[in-house]
Each structure stands twice: as C-alpha cells, then as structure tokens.
Design a protein around this nucleic acid. Structure first.
Lengths: 134, 134
DNA sequence: TTAAATGTAACCTTTTCTGTTGCATGTTTC
DNA sequence: GAAACATGCAACAGAAAAGGTTACATTTAA
C-alpha cells in the first residue's frame, strides 16, 4: 500500500464485501486480503461507519458488515466519508498582504473547488456493485 | 504553501503571467509573489517548460515567459505537465497471490483510472485566462 | 471466565515535499 | 574581459502525512 491507499483500501474492501453482503468480516481477515494491518483497516473502515456505509460489532463473532446494498453505495459516498480532498486543498491559505495577490489566490482556490465538485459529481455516478461487477 | 502546492503554485503563477503576457519574470519575483522559494519556483516551472507551456532564458535580463496565449493553456495542460495523478495511484501495486484478490485490485485500479480520465477531461474545459478572468 | 472482536492511543518508520545552500553555466552590460 | 544577474541542478535538512506496529481497554458471545 502506498498512494491513495485509504481510498483504494476502502473500495477494495467494500467491493469484496459486496460479493457476499450480510456476511460479517473481521478487521484481521480484511487486512489479510488487502495486505495491510488490522488497525489500519479499522482506521479506514471507522470513517465509513461514521458515514453510515458500514456497521461494526464488538465482541465475540463481531466484525464489519455493509449497512446498505452495494448498489446504493456510490464512490462519492466513500470519497466523502474518508474526508479526502484530492483537488482542492484543505485550507492552505496563508493570506498575502497584496490585495491583487490575495484575489488571485482566491480565484485559483475557487477554480479548484469547482473541479473538486465535478469530481464528486462524477463519483456519484458509480456504485460499489459496479466496481465489482464489471 | 501546503497541500497541492505544486498545482496551486503553477496555476497562481500562470494566471499572474496571463495578466501581462510577453513580460519576463524572474524566479525570485515569482517566489516573492507566491510566498515561496526561487528554487521551488524553478522546480515547478521547469516542468511547465518541458511541457511547452513556458520558456525560460538564462543570463542577465533572463527569466520566465508564457509560451502560448493564456487562452490556449488549459488546466489539463498544467496538470499533466506536473505529472500529478490525484486519483489513480502511481503503480502502487504489490500483486497479491490470490487470483480473485488480484482481479479485484485490478478492477479498483481500472475504476480509478476512469475517474482520473474524467478529471483530466474536466480540466480541459478551463483555460488559464478563465482562471484569471472570472 | 475465557476467547475473540473492536476502539484507541502512542510511537516508529517511511515517504514525500518544501525550503535552503552552494555552485556551475549562460547572457548581458560595462 | 570582467562583473552582474539569471537559470539549472545537485545535495541536504526539516516538516508533515501516512502506514505499520504494539499495547491495552472495552465489549460480547460461548
């Protein structure tokens, strides 16, 4: 795992789960499949749970389960759940003194925000079951 | 400068130059405006030069100049010049043994490639002069 | 009570990027 | 020809982000 690994891991896991919904999977098993660590899995899937895409159960026979049908989970749901902002930065701003410069910076930021929205819109058009399915 | 700083810096600089094309600007002056370092500027703008978006001249009274009209430089040109791949990873792959797992991984990668292409296509629709202009 | 799972905090390591310094090279001006 | 000023580039330091790992508390079922 290297780059964009959170998104990759999330998509990989969800797609995998889509193949047999209602089945419970442990972090350890998922980590095994994804070639990573159970804690890392819990970190990423925790975000997805907060967003209502997954449920988790503690204790014996606990684990992770899809909270919705695979066809009702879009890539945008996943992307937003992870709080990634690939295009637009996370409020990088150190505001320059010069007004012209500041205005230009805001223009650039606004354009990147626009691109980000386009990206999310595009992500809305694909569901997890499509990732798996073909 | 923090996140997506290369893309930000490039867009900021190009937009700035679009305001007065044909004028030569030094790395030092650009760095001043952008709140960063001349070497960083040269690193980023060097990529843009390789892509044919800028020209640079050494020596006394040298510096950077737009190689095309601002209206003929799209955000996709800039993005691709920087060799950024925001969505799709840069060949992260460590191929897993299991064939099913490997196939799934390839599916995810293919989807992300698709998204990446959509992003670039979207970037093609905006030019530098539009960034500046409003 | 024990085993097995998540939830979290803490820490290390790796990776990536920016910032910086230094110097070679090229170009104009005097 | 020398000096001033620009890019080009290599090398290194430092910060920041992310993954990997360990440890432990908590919860739940057998």
């Amino acid at each position: 795992m290297k780059r964009n690994s959170r998104l990759s891991l999330a998509l990989h896991t969800l797609s995998h789960m889509a193949g047999d919904p209602d089945r419970v999977r442990t972090s350890a098993a998922i980590a095994e499949h994804a070639g990573t660590n159970p804690v890392v899995v819990r970190r990423v899937l925790g975000r997805l749970r907060e967003a209502g895409l997954l449920t988790s159960e503690k204790g014996h026979a606990g684990g992770w389960r899809l909270a919705r049908k695979p066809g009702e989970i879009t890539l945008a749901d996943v992307y937003l759940a992870l709080n990634e902002r690939l295009v637009a930065g996370r409020e990088n701003a150190d505001t320059p003194e010069c007004a012209v410069e500041r205005a230009l910076q805001e223009r650039v930021a606004a354009v990147l925000e626009d691109i980000e929205r386009s990206l999310v819109k595009r992500l809305t058009e694909t569901s997890i079951s499509e990732v798996r399915g073909g």
